[in-house]
């Protein structure tokens, strides 16, 4: 990660010099610039997740229709993605690209804040422009903080937890079906992640916490600028998809024509056919899956028809 961290250190030191040797301002400006540069990626990621959210009901229908036959499920999903021009990896790719940048940034701030001999040995090896040494050590005092040390009043860790939670709540709306396993995962993520990062920030240099808080606030602002803020999501209510997509419009003849790969065994019994399942397909489920499918069938019967 040095190939990213080292140029970031140089950039941070230039900002430090440009803004009157204020490390706090340098970190804030540094965070704003990097957020602005990576905004197209963030935007693409959010758009993609929005589209995936719109597709969620259709995906659920497909799962029901091809219950027990994973191959057909996958084929049908591909048909769905193709028809609506969606690349399922498009949501991950920006994240994958941003992760090294985030790690590089983190490393840069950590190194530049160095206030122990070993950190200085490390910093020396990272300074691509020797003249920058003249600025060392950086002036790390800001308000009650020494930016190279943890916040003694624990104000920043609290802010880190609050802003991380807020950002995750706003940018990760719960899936439409609260009983979906991914919904539970999302709930856990939005609870555990902020706490975990908050715990880390108790022992991290407060300069890093400032970077984290500013980054979170900017993330929320960016999301708001895209018109995606819905404060209902903070109360755990799902965003209503702006566009409902159904599998009725899909051409699934090719998928239906595929031979079924599901093989019944003595332990497994064929599941009762649901209304949406094709008659010629005889899906096989395990007992657990069967229970799930039965409960879903009950749900479907209870829920109003679309």
């Amino acid at each position: 990660m040095d190939f990213l961290t080292n140029p970031f250190i140089v950039a941070l030191l230039f900002l430090y010099r440009a803004f009157g040797e204020s490390l706090f301002v340098a970190i804030v400006v540094f965070t704003i610039i990097t957020r602005a540069v990576t905004f197209p990626l963030t935007q693409q990621q959010l758009k993609s997740s929005k589209k995936m959210q719109e597709l969620a009901p259709a995906l659920k229908e497909l799962k029901e229709r091809y219950k027990g036959d994973r191959e057909k499920q996958a084929q049908a999903q591909m048909v769905l993605y193709r028809q609506y021009g969606i690349n399922p990896l498009a949501g991950c790719l920006p994240l994958v690209i941003q992760m090294p940048i985030l790690f590089g940034l983190y490393g840069a701030i950590y190194s530049a804040l160095g206030n122990t001999p070993l950190q200085f040995v490390d910093l020396h090896q990272r300074l691509l422009i020797p003249n920058l040494s003249q600025m060392l050590p950086l002036k790390t005092s800001f308000a009650w903080l020494n930016l190279g040390q943890p916040d003694p009043l624990f104000i920043l860790p609290v802010l880190v937890v609050a802003t991380t939670w807020l950002q995750m709540k706003l940018t990760m709306p719960p899936p439409p079906d609260p009983k979906d396993p991914s919904a539970a995962m999302t709930r856990n993520m939005t609870t555990i992640m902020p706490l975990m990062i908050g715990l880390f920030s108790i022992s991290f240099a407060s300069g890093l916490s400032i970077y984290w808080v500013v980054g979170n606030v900017l993330g929320i602002v960016q999301y708001a600028l895209m018109g995606r803020i819905d404060f209902r999501t903070m109360r755990g209510k799902a965003n209503a998809p702006t566009q409902s997509i159904s599998i009725k419009d899909l051409d699934l003849k090719e998928v239906d024509a595929m031979p079924s790969r599901a093989k019944p065994t003595g332990a497994n019994r064929p599941a009762p056919a649901t209304a949406s399942a094709p008659a010629k397909s005889a899906p096989v489920v395990t007992s657990t899956k069967r229970k799930l499918s039965e409960s879903r069938s009950v749900q479907q019967r209870k829920s109003p028809k679309r």
Partner: peptide, 8 residues
């Protein structure tokens, strides 16, 4: 939580 405590 244990991992976080250990790391932090």
């Amino acid at each position: 939580v244990v991992s976080a405590l250990l790391l932090s």
